[in-house]
């Protein structure tokens, strides 16, 4: 746990060598890819965005202000890359191949391991407004702190907390309507 604690803040980032960065990459790649894929769907560009975020951090590691969350920095970099990319492809659609970001249908193999209620909740989460959904997913699925989410999304911590609370109330109402037994102790 101490090693995670050490690299979770930018203090020790400058001291990391290449092997250290590969370790950092190994630790955070899966969740960052999952995050990028929430915007882009299953797409090699999601992988590209994550790798680029790490390479940027590598290049700048000596100049980053100390005391910041590495994880939040990485999420924020991925988010910027994904958003820039989406913006640019929308603008230059005539120059590039078609870049439709419609989500691919869930892979049946992946579905086999999940429960029915899990699929239901997934559907309800998709119904949330974009930013509320993002805040909720970062908190519930990625386990990020509220202040980290605020940094990533560029909003106040209070706003993040409101989003999470409203998302949770929305899900509670959906769950109650689906099967009131679910929320009984």
């Amino acid at each position: 746990m101490t090693t995670l604690e050490q690299t979770s803040s930018t203090e020790t980032l400058a001291a990391l060598d290449e092997a250290g960065f590969v370790a950092l990459y190994t630790a955070y790649y899966p969740e960052l890819l999952r995050y990028a894929e929430r915007f882009l769907g299953e797409d090699t560009r999601a992988h590209d965005a994550v790798q680029e975020a790490f390479l940027r951090l590598w290049k700048r590691k000596a100049t980053i202000d100390p005391g910041r969350s590495v994880r939040a920095l990485l999420y924020k970099a991925v988010r910027n890359l994904v958003f820039n990319h989406k913006r640019d492809t929308q603008r230059h659609q005539y120059l590039l191949d078609t870049m439709d970001h419609t989500r691919s249908n869930p892979d049946p193999e992946a579905l086999a391991g999940t429960t029915l209620i899990g699929e239901k909740i997934k559907g309800w989460v998709q119904e949330l407004p974009d930013r509320r959904r993002e805040a909720f997913e970062l908190s519930r699925f990625d386990g990020l702190r509220h202040d980290e989410i605020a940094t990533i999304m560029g909003v106040a911590t209070k706003t993040v907390e409101n989003h999470i609370l409203l998302a949770l109330k929305f899900l509670r109402d959906k769950l109650n309507a689906f099967d009131p037994q679910l929320l009984q102790p």
Partner: peptide
């Protein structure tokens, strides 16, 4: 509080499986 906390736990079922 109790209901919302249960909803939070249930939402864990919607977690995408890891890579």
């Amino acid at each position: 509080q109790e209901e919302l906390e249960r909803a939070w736990h249930l939402a864990g079922h919607a977690q995408t499986p890891p890579l």
